[in-house]
């Protein structure tokens, strides 16, 4: 564990807490893409298959449970909670995310560290996470103005993988057996997808204006 990875995990945790706060405090999921939440649920379930087989540390296990639990809880809320689901706007959240699932799984079948059940699902989860934010970003562009909590949720979610890139650079220079090009390339793509969002977020913060993404 290094400071970059810890900062990344904490930023990721904060993004989840901000999302839970928004949904539970406002009893509304307006501006949130159910499809992105479903993709993240698949990402965590596919990545943490070793949850009950490989024990790495209490921290590792607890965080995995938090990530899986929170993503499934959000999906459940947006689909079944009688108050929250009313604020879900399926007419705006129209990204065909099943193509992302299929495409990433196909890619994982061909590009992986090792052809084993675990490794293929791990690579699949890494590729899927890189593109999981697309439905959310498309929804924000369509819905125009972005409420503060949703903006902060996306900001922290994008920043966490940026910290992970620093973590991989650090581990590259401090550890010998270091081959995680799958994570690195996907992490770079993932962070790059947020580039324009970060730009417009910074502009709105500098002008102290409401965050607006150009359609």
């Amino acid at each position: 564990m290094n400071i970059f990875r810890f900062a990344g995990d904490m930023t990721h945790l904060i993004s989840i807490l901000v999302l839970l706060l928004k949904v539970y405090a406002t009893k509304s999921c307006s501006g949130i893409s159910l499809k992105t939440q479903e993709l993240y649920g698949i990402v965590f379930l596919a990545r943490y298959l070793d949850l009950f087989t490989d024990f790495i540390s209490v921290y590792n296990t607890v965080m995995k449970l938090v990530f899986i639990g929170s993503s499934l809880a959000i999906v459940w809320c947006m689909r079944f909670h009688r108050v929250v689901k009313r604020s879900y706007d399926r007419d705006v959240d129209t990204f065909r995310h099943y193509f992302l699932v299929g495409g990433c799984f196909l890619l994982a079948l061909f590009v992986h560290e090792k052809f084993s059940f675990r490794e293929v699902f791990w690579a699949f989860s890494i590729y899927l996470e890189a593109v999981a934010i697309l439905p959310q970003l498309i929804l924000l562009q369509r819905s125009g103005n972005v409420d503060n909590l949703t903006g902060q949720y996306v900001l922290f979610l994008g920043a966490y993988r940026g910290f992970y890139i620093l973590n991989w650079i650090y581990r590259y220079f401090t550890e010998d057996q270091f081959s995680r090009w799958i994570s690195c390339v996907s992490g770079l793509v993932q962070t790059a997808l947020y580039a324009d969002f970060f730009y417009y977020y910074f502009i709105s913060w500098k002008n102290n204006a409401k965050l607006k993404l150009p359609a």
Partner: peptide, 10 residues
């Protein structure tokens, strides 16, 4: 040891 070293990450 872990099947793959990077699986210590979240």
């Amino acid at each position: 040891p872990l099947e793959h070293p990077m699986h210590d990450e979240l």
